[in-house]
Structures are given as C-alpha cells and as structure tokens.
C-alpha cells in the first residue's frame, strides 16, 4: 500500500473502527423467498388455468399443484427456521406475537396456508390414486370428504396473495436497506410467484391441452417481461436515495454481484421471455422445459443479488 498518497481535503477517511458485520441475511433467506414463490405461484397460476379451462384438460393438476406447493412451502419453512439463531424459540412468534412486524403476520399466514395446502394435497392424492390404501379407514374418510378440496381452494387462492407478498413488507420494514421499497417489492414478489409458478407447472404439463400450454407460455412471457422491466428501473434509475445510489454505484462499477446480476437477468428473464413468446403461437415443449429451468435458476440468482447488495453498505 502506498502510504504517500495524500488524503484530499474534502474527504474524510476512517482510520480506526471495529469489524463490520458482513451479509446478515444470506442464501437461506434467498432460498426461503424462492421456495415461497413456487409454493404460492403454482396455486395462483393453477387457479388462473382452472378459471379459463376445464379441469379435464389438466388431468394431474388437482393433486400435483398442492403437492408441489406443499414441498416448496416446507422448504421455505425449513430454511426460515434454520436461519434463526434460536430456532427452538420460533414458537415465540405464536406465543408472543408482535403484530406490527411483517415477520409475525407472515409466519401466521404462511403456517395457515401450508396447513390448507397439506389438506388439499392429501385429498388430491387419495382421489388421484383410488386404489391406494383402498381399505384403510383414514383413506376412506379422506375420500368421503373429497368435496372439501373445492370448498377450501378459493380461500387458499385468496390467501396465496398476501403469503406471496408479505416478504416485501419485511423488506420495507428493514429501514436500513433503502434499496428495498415496499411498493415495487410487492409487485416483484407477485411477478416472481407467477414466473416460477408457471415454470413449475410447465414441467408437469406434458399431457395438458395445447391451449393450456399456450396460456402457461403467456403467463411466463408477461411475468418475466414485467419483472425484468422493474429490475432495470430499480437498477438504473433509483436516483432519490443516497444510500441506494451508493450501493448501486458500487455494483455498477463491476463490484461484487455485478456479474451474478446480469447472469441472472439473461438466464431468468431474457432467455425465457423469447422462448415463451415464441411458444405462445407455436408451442415447443422441449424449449419451454428449458425456459422453465432457466427461469427457476435465474430467479434464485436475481433474488440472491437483490437480497445481498444493500447489505454491502456500512451503516455507521
């Protein structure tokens, strides 16, 4: 290091300080958000498809949709739990809830949502495989209450919206990270759910009708296009907050996460957009499966960057 360099009069330099905290919320929180988007996204996209098409056109949707959602939600809840420094005290959220916290409200909603999804998954699976445990009394009673699935479903779809979006409020409540603004993050969360929801359903849509598949391509194309536009807006035009400008200037200059951000944009947004747009008129199942996979990977990477870059800035 060249100690002969003069310190400019207009600049101040820190000459003694403590070690600064690094990334506080890391990959587990990224995985948490990503898995939650899948868990709620398949329900939202599934509901849209069921609204537009007959269920016979999507024969496995009734049991696979809640099953995928249930698996994703359990990944989300598991990583939420192990990210805590005192995981066994998670119960305090239910015993001593603090309702101004979006973490509390979200935990309650997500738990209820997971419970209802589990109910749907069990009913859907027993109905899809009528010979499985035919003589089991529990299976019989579940099959007898099969209509509960359709009764619960509208409420689950309604609940999927706030469960998708509450993480944006947590980000907004993280006042120290100015990059995360409530309103755009709410829309980003919703779009992320539609992106990975449609991507997940594309992977199980082999036997679905052509019209349903084209709808899936349309949802994927529009959601990645809107989400990409928002990322570009936030990435280049966040002029009004000094801390945001400082953070983004560091990333723009080729700093940490610059390459990952652009890799995510190409993989998760640009490639799927062009493939999905083409498949809206001429559906190509192989390319669409490829687009679905790149969307899932790209969104994880984009969320990871967006989570970590505001944490690079020293706060004091």
């Amino acid at each position: 290091m060249d100690h002969g360099t003069v310190i400019e009069a207009t600049k101040a330099v820190v000459t003694l300080d403590i070690a600064l905290p690094g990334i506080i919320w890391g990959w587990m929180i990224t995985l948490n958000m990503w898995a939650k988007s899948i868990g709620t996204g398949v329900v939202l996209v599934g509901a849209f498809l069921l609204h537009r098409h007959k269920k016979e056109e999507m024969p496995n949707l009734r049991w696979l949709m809640p099953l995928i959602s249930f698996i994703a939600l359990n990944i989300f809840l598991f990583f939420t739990l192990i990210d805590l420094h005192q995981p066994l005290r998670m119960i305090n959220i239910f015993l001593h809830p603090h309702w101004t916290s979006a973490i509390t409200v979200g935990a309650w909603m997500a738990s209820l949502f997971t419970g209802l999804i589990m109910l749907m998954a069990v009913i859907g699976a027993f109905d899809a495989f009528p010979d499985f445990r035919r003589h089991c009394s529990i299976a019989k009673s579940v099959r007898a209450k099969s209509s509960l699935y359709e009764k619960v479903f509208p409420f689950v779809v309604f609940l999927a919206l706030p469960v998708t979006m509450y993480t944006a409020i947590i980000m907004a409540q993280s006042s120290a990270r100015e990059l995360w603004v409530g309103a755009p993050e709410l829309i980003q969360m919703l779009l992320a759910a539609f992106m990975v929801g449609s991507a997940s359903l594309i992977l199980i849509s082999e036997k679905w009708s052509a019209e349903v598949k084209k709808d899936l391509a349309m949802i994927l194309a529009f959601s990645v296009a809107f989400s990409f536009t928002m990322y570009m807006g936030e990435y280049f035009f966040s002029f009004k907050a000094a801390e945001v400008e400082a953070t983004l200037a560091f990333v723009h200059s080729g700093g940490a996460y610059n390459v990952q951000f652009w890799f995510a944009m190409v993989l998760g947004f640009i490639i799927p957009f062009f493939i999905a747009k083409g498949s809206m008129t001429n559906y190509n199942p192989t390319l669409m499966r490829f687009a679905a996979v790149t969307t899932l990977i790209g969104l994880y990477m984009a969320k990871d960057v967006w989570l970590k870059i505001p944490q690079l800035l020293p706060l004091s």
Partner: peptide, 25 residues
C-alpha cells in the same frame, strides 16, 4: 425472548445491533 431472526439488524439504520456470539440473540 429473542429468536435470532436478525430482522432488527436489518432494520436499524445505525448498525447498532449485533448478534451475540455466545447467546445467539
């Protein structure tokens, strides 16, 4: 009572909160 979610560390604009390495709170 703290569950160690670190939400407070993300919210404090002054970087004044730390995670105690002994108590993990």
């Amino acid at each position: 009572r703290c569950i160690g979610c670190a939400g407070c560390m993300m919210a404090c604009p002054y970087g004044a909160i730390y995670m105690d390495p002994e108590s993990n709170t």
